[in-house]
Design a binder for these strands. Structure first.
Length: 627
DNA sequence: TCTCTCACTTC
DNA sequence: TGAAGTGAGAG
């Protein structure tokens, strides 16, 4: 090994301090010796310095003084930094005050009254009503990423029976979770606030092998969309950023592969422009078919002649005739309309079309407004009890009296309320509370250049309401892995799995994460390994094996991986004071009231939920990742 | 209950 | 003009 102080040896990239900054400790320590190539050792072991290079710093006495001073200054600077809040995301996050308004609320409200059904197909379907939101209160200059995900609303499978949705059993294992990042992300607060944020490109599918980045759902299961606002200028920073999450209870829906409720079908047709062809306006196929059916029926009743001639005897609608002939469906139509004649609603519709048709959409819009106003009056009550009632009963579904004929059509998961365990563990929306706790610690991740998330501190112990739980399996949400599909859809994997045993004792929802690279059909385990989908379940199983106790009903091989976003700590009671979860959920009004509290410390910050009691509607919570 | 094709729509 | 988004309906 070289002697660092060999005179004249210039082979070590000489560093000769000259400017003041060169004499700081950092500058010196950054240079491994020898950094004074001109220094020579005297016979006494002291330094011999050429006169030309003498500098106050090079004087042994002065140097010691200077170094001591520099060290002291650096120490003071460090202490000062500890005392003052670091300029991190946590500090910056308090600078804005985002509020979100659901622009399409009136539509959602209208659908929700009958139990919103959302068609899912193998090739992916858009959501209707669309999820459109308007943001306010953002920092104009700061960059934000807006996201949306859809989580299971409860642990049940549903069936449509006797014109209403009923619980039919335990939920199927949850599909791989994906987070949809709005394609405009990241954008400045000014940009987001200048427009309505539309998530119309988000598609739903039941194809577990989907490679497009669509959101994968289980048919006949209830889901709740969630909207997230994240202040971050880079998607890679998402794991370390604060998530503000907004939940609008009226956007809850049941995924179906085929519509169950005729009213929902009709409302979709009436409101979705792409379904215009099925409207009773006289131009679409539905009109033609109905015309055809009626004419056929009339014709056969009156003449009993061949059905092929029926269209020719119709009301003279050339289009109708054309449609009939080209479709060559006379026989089918006759059969169809004779059958549906048993359906009073369809009879009514068919009868109406013979009259001058009012604008259906306008008619419903008026109805929307009326019902919406009615609901707003009832649900926006200033009475906290009203809020609580709404929360317990699933929002507006119980706003009508039992005598109200509409009540029979409402979206009522009948057995949920009586499920004691559900009430205890806070399953589903029926136990919505004004204050909600999430695990106080975020599992931390490093995103390596390959986009694989590695969790940091995965053995960290966190204290949750007096109980210590390992964060290995305790994660609020998985927002950790981003992937961009071939069509530009950004997704991140998030799969929540309740850790039942821990949850029961701590009263907090715990989740297990699964990270899906949608574009590649891969799922990344919480520990960074990449698996094909089947492995994602295996990984989840393994991770849960010591904690999960939820029985498997339908597919024993894959245990339920239900994420319970709405669990509350203490049964159905509403605490007067919420003791301070780092991550908290608040129920808000639809009046864009921001009720959240952001704490610097995810563990200890107090949270006063009392103000939120009067504001029920969208559910809103904040989660924070500390770096 | 699900999948596929069809005719129709919007953009 | 064609891609993409609709519900109907058959299987």
């Amino acid at each position: 090994m070289r002697d660092p102080l060999v005179p004249g040896d210039m082979a070590f990239q000489p560093f000769l301090p000259n400017t003041a900054s060169d004499f700081t400790l950092d500058a010196m320590l950054a240079r491994q010796p020898p950094f004074f190539p001109a220094i020579a050792l005297t016979s006494h072991g002291s330094l011999h310095l050429p006169v030309a290079q003498r500098h106050p710093m090079l004087d042994p006495v002065n140097a010691e003084t200077i170094l001591r001073k520099a060290s002291l200054e650096q120490h003071n600077a460090t202490q000062s930094a500890k005392l003052s809040p670091p300029k991190t995301l946590e500090t910056e996050a308090t600078e804005d005050d985002p509020k979100v308004h659901l622009e399409t609320r009136h539509l959602w409200t209208q659908f929700h009254k009958f139990g919103t059904e959302m068609v899912i197909t193998k090739s992916g379907r858009r959501m209707f009503p669309p999820f459109k939101a308007r943001c306010t209160g953002l920092n104009q200059r700061a960059k934000y990423i807006l996201l949306m995900d859809i989580v299971a609303a409860d642990d049940f499978r549903y069936k449509f029976h006797n014109s209403r949705w009923m619980v039919s059993g335990k939920a199927d294992p949850e599909m791989p979770k994906r987070m949809y990042i709005h394609p405009d992300s990241p954008a400045s607060g000014e940009q987001w606030m200048s427009k309505v944020v539309n998530f119309h490109k988000l598609k739903l599918t039941n194809n577990i092998s989907d490679k497009h980045g669509f959101t994968i759902l289980n048919s006949m299961h209830k889901y709740q969309p969630r909207f997230h606002v994240v202040r971050a200028n880079d998607i890679l920073k998402l794991p370390y950023s604060t998530f503000r999450t907004y939940v609008f209870s009226e956007t809850e829906f049941i995924a179906v592969t085929a519509y169950q409720n005729d009213k929902i079908t009709q409302m979709k047709i009436d409101n979705n422009p792409f379904a215009k062809g099925f409207r009773d306006t006289g131009n679409g196929r539905r009109e033609k078919k109905k015309q055809l059916g009626i004419n056929i029926q009339k014709f056969s009743e009156t003449s009993g002649d061949s059905l092929d001639e029926a269209p020719l005897k119709s009301a003279g609608n050339a289009k109708s005739i054309e449609g009939c002939q080209s479709d060559n469906e006379s026989g089918q139509e006759s059969k169809h309309w004779n059958n549906v004649g048993q359906d009073s609603r369809k009879i009514s519709t068919t009868t109406e079309e013979l009259k001058p048709e009012p604008n259906v959409t306008t008619f419903h819009d008026k109805a929307d407004r009326a019902s919406t106003d009615s609901l707003r009056t009832e649900t926006d009550s200033e009475d906290p009890k009203q809020d609580h009632i709404n929360a317990i009963t699933g929002g507006m579904t119980r706003c009508f009296g039992a005598e109200d004929p509409r009540a029979t059509e409402h979206f009522q998961p009948l057995t949920v309320e009586t499920d004691q365990s559900a009430r205890i563990t806070g399953l589903g929306r029926n136990t919505f509370s004004h204050c909600y706790s999430y695990p106080p610690d975020w599992t931390r991740y490093i995103l390596n250049p390959l986009g694989v998330a590695h969790r940091l501190l995965h053995n960290a112990q966190v204290n949750m309401q007096g109980e210590t739980v390992s964060s290995v399996a305790a994660t609020a949400m998985g927002h950790m892995l981003m992937a961009v599909s071939s069509d530009g859809v950004c997704t991140m994997g998030t799969a929540g799995i309740p850790v039942s045993s821990v949850q029961r004792t701590s009263g907090l929802p715990l989740n297990f994460q699964q990270h899906a690279m949608a574009s590649q059909g891969l799922t990344v385990s919480p520990f960074g390994a990449i698996f094909p989908y089947p492995y994602s379940y295996l990984a989840a199983t393994a991770a849960l094996s010591t904690t999960a106790s939820t029985p498997v009903h339908r597919r024993p091989v894959r245990p339920p991986t239900r994420f319970r976003p709405y669990s509350i700590p203490n049964s159905v009671g509403l605490p007067d004071n919420c003791s301070t979860p780092p991550t908290s959920i608040h129920l808000m009004t639809d009046r864009d009231v921001n009720c959240h509290t952001i704490a610097n410390s995810p563990i200890a910050a107090p949270l006063d939920c009392s103000h939120a009691m009067n504001h029920y509607k969208p559910l809103y919570f904040t989660t924070k990742a500390r770096v």
